[in-house]
Design a protein around this nucleic acid. Structure first.
Lengths: 240, 240
DNA sequence: TTTTATTGTAACAAAATGAGACAATAAGAT
DNA sequence: ATCTTATTGTCTCATTTTGTTACAATAAAA
């Protein structure tokens, strides 16, 4: 409890954080065609991972995640929701953590708390693809969008997390109007349908979809969008 | 990290557990009429709470919960599922924990780790009401069934946990065949409907319910159940 | 044998969804 | 200007699902 008086420059101080607890985030965006998520790559390791982090002693779990998303995307008003806490004994891998620490020239001894077992609370977030300014964190080289069916191999149990996040998203799409957070404030019916299709992973019938969504009475119709294409222009909609 | 060499008899050793992490469980049972949950009362405090506990360093989160349910109900094959992790700054209340420790004649100093902030992973469990042998834990006087609409005031954020558990249960009832875990292996259609009604908190139409459930093709029909009543005897069913 | 309460299922109505069809465009091609 | 093309908004009719009512088939009591 009272060790670590000398602090290297590149260190994360364990005293500030709740031990053995982390979060990971599956951050979804939609580029108009595909559903994508943010994946980062740790320095000098070839390891790909979900953006994650630790919870400060004087910070709520939700705030820790908000902070992490803000730091990496520049967005501070996002939709996010916890979906599962991963607590198996086998999920933590101290060898992987060693590689990450060494790849960042972190001192193994000072940072040995990071080699310990971690229980991780996983969140998904839905953000506006176009408004993001990506910024790698201290430990990583890059952070980038990857289409959900073209992900690199992810470390530890992060692929399981993505799978579960997608499942939860699919179940929530009807109940929680998930689409609204992945689109700009005004959008066409086609765009909305594409979000639904990307999430559900299946094609939907255009006429039925349109009728069903309009029947929900959740959309407001605005002006038409002239795209310069040789066909009828679609209306723009926003959520009420 | 190396204190606590002297151990009082009535102590929970902090070194065995992951710090700042706990679980709480909303354990549902169905008595044939009402949906009930298990609530315990801490010694000499008048405090009512959900059964909870800590996670050992060498134990998965799920196993910790299984252990807790087993110790209190005697059941080891139960259906349970995590539904939310509560991590706000305000949820932990050291005054409440002090009352509990003092009510149990625990030493405040040796057990001060329990006064710290805790992030709690909440689970719900569905168990067979009739097969339970209730047993209070070390810290509590009693553990008892309470109908969900007749709960005593619960400490800290435990009422929020119950609300959320019920919501999740309502959403899962269609997808996960929740009913099967609250009933004996053979049951009548009426019993199944009563479970649904208790969970959803609304009355269902008998004929529609029967047709819909039978249409799912998940039930196997067995012999009739003669209840000694002056009317047609219902069939018994089990899940396939 | 009649009465009573409940069960299983059928029958029809109403609502939701599936599947096409088609007229109404924007803008490019002629 | 007119014709062509791709897409949109809406309508129609078929199919499926759900709501509602009705009714015959019991177990056991009266």
């Amino acid at each position: 409890m009272d060790s670590n008086s000398k602090k290297a420059i590149r260190n994360i101080e364990d005293e500030d954080y709740i031990p053995n607890l982390s979060y990971d985030s599956v951050i979804f965006g939609f580029n108009g065609e595909q559903l994508k998520i943010l994946i980062l790559e740790y320095h000098n390791t070839g390891l790909f991972a979900l953006p994650g982090g630790f919870v400060k002693r004087h910070e709520s779990l939700d705030d820790a995640v908000k902070r992490g998303v803000l730091e990496r995307t520049g967005l501070d008003k996002i939709y996010f929701e916890q979906f599962h806490t991963f607590g198996s004994l086998t999920r933590s891998d101290s060898d992987v953590m060693k590689r990450i620490l060494l790849g960042n020239s972190f001192d193994l001894d000072t940072n040995k708390w990071m080699l310990d077992r971690f229980i991780s609370v996983a969140y998904y977030a839905l953000i506006n693809y176009d408004k993001v300014t990506l910024k790698p964190d201290l430990l990583s080289d890059s952070i980038n969008w990857y289409a959900i069916d073209e992900l690199p191999p992810l470390m530890m149990d992060h692929e399981k997390m993505v799978d579960k996040a997608l499942n939860v998203l699919r179940n929530n799409i009807e109940k929680k109007l998930v689409g609204m957070n992945l689109l700009p404030s005004k959008f066409t019916m086609k765009q909305l349908q594409q979000v639904y299709e990307a999430i559900l992973g299946e094609n939907l019938r255009r006429t039925t979809f349109q009728r069903r969504i309009l029947g929900m009475n959740i959309l407001e119709r605005h002006e038409k969008l002239y795209q310069g294409k040789a066909h009828k222009a679609p209306y723009l909609y926003s959520f009420k």
